[in-house]
């Protein structure tokens, strides 16, 4: 997939994954693998960005004698998903335009 397009979708994909259940780094990548490829080094900046705008929170949990960071979606994150979905109409128009079926005409 086009990297520019992918970049915009990744954040939302991670949010959507976390909306279904709280999760951790490795599991997020494994779950999203069939849908969209995320490398381990690109996931961290995404998580950090989402943490910064408080779209997600994190919580340390002990797993097999080590700490694992679990991420949960917040209301701000859920808001972001709904905004993305509501913007879809606009995206669809653009898509039509690109395909050459000008709906206005």
């Amino acid at each position: 997939m086009n990297t520019q397009l992918k970049k915009g979708l990744l954040d939302i994909c991670v949010l959507a994954e976390l909306e279904r259940k709280e999760s951790y780094g490795y599991a997020i990548i494994q779950d999203l693998k069939p849908l969209i490829e995320i490398s381990e080094s690109t996931l961290y900046p995404i998580l950090k960005r989402l943490l910064n705008k408080q779209a997600i929170t994190s919580k340390n949990q002990i797993h097999n004698n080590r700490i694992r960071k679990y991420y949960q979606i917040t209301d701000i994150g859920k808001q972001e998903i709904t905004e993305f979905i509501s913007e879809w109409g606009q995206v669809e128009k653009i898509f039509q335009f690109i395909k050459g079926e000008d709906s206005n005409g």
């Binding site: 951790y24 780094g25 381990e40 080094s41 950090k48 097999n64 700490i67 694992r68 960071k69």
Partner: peptide, 28 residues
Amino acid sequence: DYLDYYSEYLDDLIESGLTDMQAIDRVG
């Protein structure tokens, strides 16, 4: 933060059955 993240990630990869080397290769 980065070290914690990669430490956890490598642990998860190793737990899934990879060796240390393979896990590091996977991360790049």
